[in-house]
């Protein structure tokens, strides 16, 4: 409990300590590296549960109806849980966890690739440490606020603005590549910020601050865990910032079978 409170305190007030890893301790033998990776994966899984379980219990996620496997009844029934509910919960939990896991994997690839490219890498473990802590705390916070926006009736304008920004981002890349793709929800329609209530404005400000924490934590991770210079750390953050572009380009290529070159 005390450790959790300390981590929350560090996450809010001391991001450098939160994402900072003991690099020398991590540069050990393979056995130590495996132990460190296992520990970090446990941290990530723990944070994932803390993030995804409340979302799933709140009804997020859309898993198509499917019959629960018979073996599940043997586990769920003694716990007083209906096999159908348990199966539905597990499927939606996996779905809700997938977004953050995918985002973490992409962030890790971009972050570590960048520190490797700039020759400032001190190993995989410090990168994994940085990404596990930054994504499972700050990025999960960003996702949670976005979820909140999508459900709260009193902050509709902020929700529309965030969706609009995402659509505009995707369509900018679609238009740049010349791909003949359309999003199911169509092109973005203008959303007036003038209709934003104080709750909308506060929600958008919170989102911006948590996003700032996420970016700053990656910068600190690069500086502290890899001993990168300010310039290299900034480049690393910019590389991670380009990850959504790569993700959208990859999605376009997957949809079309190839990436159109304009």
């Amino acid at each position: 409990m005390r450790r959790t409170l300390t981590q929350v305190y560090d996450a809010i007030f001391r991001p450098s300590r939160f994402v900072g890893a003991n690099v020398n301790r991590m540069q050990g033998r393979a056995v130590q590296d495996v132990a460190a990776v296992s520990r970090l994966l446990v941290v990530f899984a723990g944070n994932l549960v803390i993030y995804a379980v409340p979302l799933t219990l709140a009804g997020f996620g859309t898993a198509p109806a499917a019959a629960a496997p018979r073996s599940l009844a043997a586990v769920s029934t003694p716990l007083g849980l209906s096999p159908t509910w348990t199966w539905d919960f597990l499927r939606r939990f996996v779905q809700n966890s997938l977004y953050i896991t995918l985002a973490a994997a992409l962030t890790f690839a971009a972050f570590h690739g960048s520190v490797q490219f700039t020759r400032s890498s001190t190993g995989v473990v410090p990168s994994l440490h940085t990404v596990v802590y930054s994504t499972s705390a700050y990025l999960a916070g960003v996702f949670s606020v976005v979820w909140l926006l999508s459900t709260s009736a009193s902050i509709a304008v902020a929700d529309a603005l965030v969706l609009n920004a995402q659509k505009r981002f995707v369509y900018t890349i679609i238009d740049a590549t010349g791909a003949s793709l359309v999003l199911p929800s169509g092109r973005p329609t203008p959303v007036s910020l003038a209709d934003a209530t104080p709750a909308d404005q506060a929600a958008l400000a919170t989102l911006a601050v948590i996003l700032g924490y996420f970016v700053y934590s990656l910068y600190l991770g690069s500086r502290i865990n890899h001993g990168a210079s300010r310039l290299t750390a900034t480049l690393t953050v910019l590389t991670v910032g380009l990850t959504p572009v790569v993700f959208v380009l990859g999605s376009i290529a997957l949809s079309l079978g190839s990436l159109p070159i304009p």
Partner: peptide, 21 residues
């Protein structure tokens, strides 16, 4: 004015965190 108000919220939040820290 709305965007500026959001800016004020952001500055207030960050300042609050820094001051508390």
């Amino acid at each position: 004015p709305e965007a500026t108000r959001i800016g004020i919220y952001i500055v207030s939040l960050v300042a609050l965190l820094v001051v508390a820290r």
